[in-house]
Write a protein that binds this DNA or RNA. Sequence first.
DNA 1: AACCTGACGGACA
DNA 2: CTGTCCGCCAGGT
Length: 115
Amino acid sequence: MKRPSNLTEYQQAVYDCVSTIPKGCVTTYGSLAQAMDRGSARSAGQALRVNPFAPRVPCHRVVRSDGRLGGFSGQTEGPEVARKRTLLQNEGVRFTDADHVHPDCLWTPPMSQPS
DNA sequence: AACCTGACGGACA
DNA sequence: CTGTCCGCCAGGT
């Protein structure tokens, strides 16, 4: 199995940061970018969209700032997104309704230190 | 190098 | 509350 090694520095940074999200918590695309002090919500999403380490890197723990789920496995709607919701629920993430995560489950990754 | 495309976000009507 | 607009920035053509 050829594991993709043609990753950009940015993608590595994103996957690395996402890997630190605790189980049962979620963070947002924007918070991710802020913590890394790199890119933007959009570019972070772009990196996750093509995430080759699908379940290993918990990209399902990254949601929109408005509490809605965002995409999963390349899709922004449909069964894949439904699966994202299921995964989160299994980890203990609670929802206010069908597609809004409970604000209490939000978690902010630590900021990278300004040297 | 120019142009286009988003798993986004915040402002505003 | 919803929908629209525009800025954002990495990647692929």
